[in-house]
Amino acid sequence: MYSFLIRRIAFVIIALLGATAVVFSLSRMAGDPVLLYAKPSGYGSEDYLDNLRKKLGTDRPLVVQYFRWVGQLIQGDLGRTLLAERPVIDVIQEKIWNTFQLAFAGWFFATILGVPLGVLSAVKRGTFWDYIGRSIALFGQALPAFWVGVMLVLVFAVYWQIFPAAFKGEGFSIKHFVLPTITIGWGAAAGYLRITRSAMLEVLDSEFVKLARAKGVGSSGVIWKHAFKNALIPPLTLSALLLAGLMNGAVVAEVVFAWPGLGRVALVEAVNNNDFPLLTGAVFIFTIIYLIMNFVADVLYAWADPRIRYS
């Protein structure tokens, strides 16, 4: 158990260093960040640029800059954004809860839609319900989330005026969650559906399920108690990673629905402005979330399948 935890934690640290180092390097490969802020100043501005470099710390070698950033990170300081010179941690705190709410809603929607439909599709294999399920899986994975979002706005906000077209609403407004949740959860539900269906089909054909039927176990008992629990491992693994993935992937819904989340700020604005402190800070946070969810997935996996041991 302990060795498992130590190995996982070591992996987390290595992955964190790797991810941030890559983003840190890529942001510099786009050019000297100082040149983004060099105004039409006329001659004699090299001193000005040098001062800017000193102020931003970009006058040092890249490796030094990176480890300096890591040193600050250990002290809980993610630096300041280039654009507004605000503490990065403040910007992240301001936005990340909105992103998490949306990602969780999308994950919940995907789970309650995708998993039961996957089971239904497998149990009713070759029937009308199977075709419905497979169609949802096909369209869910084929339709871009951006297009789905725009269509949902057009139909449900503009034509039928059932839901608002955008924004998060004041406080906790469920009606503002509906369309963005479907937008990001639709594709995820399709993934769930496919993986659950294939796992269920495999299990339903297995000997122990036939045995259960032969022993006279009721249909629902066979499906949910015997088959589903054994088919649960792939969707369970997907589930944890999906939540982390939706944290990153919510950016599409955030753009379409003007959702004030971190993705729009960190992955759109920061990239456009090459705001490397914000970009690196946000990637650091996203990486931590992903690694935590990955860890949770490992644990759930072991819980669901007793054959798996931490050793």
Binding site: V150, A157, V158, P164, A165, A166, A258
Partner: peptide, 18 residues
Amino acid sequence: FREVGEQNTQVALMETGE
């Protein structure tokens, strides 16, 4: 002032009166 980066969303919001 609300930030709405997507033009289609701006049109929809105008149409719904938001």
